[in-house]
Amino acid sequence: MLDNIAGPDDSAFTSPAALNDINNWVPHDIVMRDAWFPLAHSAAVGKKPVRRSVYSVPYFLWREDGKAVAASVLPGAGALPETGLTDAAGRYPVMEHYGYVWCWYGNPLAADPLHLPSIPYLPPNGGLPGYLTGTVRFDCAAPVSLENLIDLTHADFLHANVVGDEKSESETVEVFSDSETVTMVRTCIGKSVAPVMKFFSGIRQPTQQVRQVIRIYLRSHAAIAYGRFTPGDDVPLFHPCVPETRDRTRLDYTMNTSNAGLLFRHVMPKASYIVSRQDSSMTSPQSPRYMHESKRRDLHSKFDVAGQRYRLLMKNLVARQAAGDFSYRDNVSADCSDLIGLRKELFRY
């Protein structure tokens, strides 16, 4: 049984005009300015420069006296490109937080720590062990990857060998949003136990209670995922989709299972390599289809409310920026612990 698939104020997202706008979706054309992007795990940045990119714009990262810096060219490389994204010395605004080096894409004078997304289950100063992190890539536009992610029900079919099948006694889905975020909350009663928890957490009963949350920070193309499994372990995942190019996405993930049992703690983060291949099998062929005209209709069902809202919010934000409005109307750094259902006693930093 599926209840409450829509959240408040859904008429703005389900009217004929809105649905028509949603169907005219070209994710490759989206460029979000005035946003923090997590370009590298802190441990990946040292004295020797490493190269990253955002929308094909190069970012070179290294450390000076232990502090992370970012520039548009390598040190001593000569002339600076005119991008309007750096200061006079060719440096980008940089923050180090949650175990990542974050770089600003946009007007450097507008860079503000207030616009850093809230990730309440990662320690602000980093320091998590390396086995909780990893890097994967997707051959698709970043919004395509995120649109796939925010439909939590897809996991029952695409990732059933990891998170379990679609069987449950009841299921409730809610969707919440503001101008900068969209969040899907899925609650399942009597859901089949996830196979990975059977094997590595030792759960013997046939079902468990599950609460899964995906929250997307639109400008940063970043998502936080939080799963509560009872009985079982919490699965907190930071899932940033950095748009390296219009059709190439880098994911430097962190799955903070440090409070789980020994086996699950070490094994579950590595499942991301299996899950990412499964996701890529769907998104990689899907992504280029948006770049060509087609007579095929882009169909939606009642289960797609979160994805529809994500599309429309992204298009609204793009339109605002095209009109010269880069302001933040909502506070992305506000603590979202209560919304995602965080068990705070497990993540006191």
Rank of each mutant, 00 (worst) to 15 (best):
P16A: 09
E174G: 07
T14E: 13
I340G: 07
P16D: 04
H292V: 13
S294K: 05
W25D: 14
D151E: 09
Q205A: 09
G227S: 13
L61R: 08
W25C: 11
G341P: 08
K270W: 07
R320E: 10
P38I: 05
M95K: 12
R329N: 08
W102A: 04
K48D: 11
F264S: 07
V185L: 15
P243V: 01
Y253N: 09
V210G: 00
K198H: 06
L346T: 06
P243D: 01
L158C: 04
S177I: 00
D247H: 15
R51W: 02
F303N: 13
H239K: 06
I30E: 11
L116S: 05
E82V: 03
N4L: 12
V213C: 10
P58V: 08
L122W: 03
L61K: 06
L39P: 08
G232D: 03
M95E: 14
A88G: 12
V163T: 15
A88H: 04
V210S: 07
K198F: 00
S201D: 09
Y290R: 13
S56H: 06
V45Q: 11
Y55T: 01
A306D: 04
P113G: 06
S177D: 08
P117E: 10
Y217A: 04
P195K: 07
D139M: 13
N256V: 04
G324A: 04
P269K: 12
V235H: 07
G261I: 07
A43L: 09
Y290W: 11
H159T: 02
T181S: 11
N23Q: 15
H28D: 13
V45Y: 08
A160F: 00
M197T: 06
S118N: 15
E174C: 09
Y217G: 06
D234K: 10
D338T: 14
E180N: 07
S179P: 02
W104I: 02
D10W: 13
I203R: 09
V196N: 09
L132I: 06
I340C: 06
M184L: 12
T133P: 03
L19F: 01
C241K: 03
L312E: 04
R211F: 02
V182T: 10
M197F: 06
A142G: 02
I119W: 05
A6H: 09
A319V: 00
I216V: 15
N161L: 04
V182K: 13
P38Y: 05
L312Q: 14
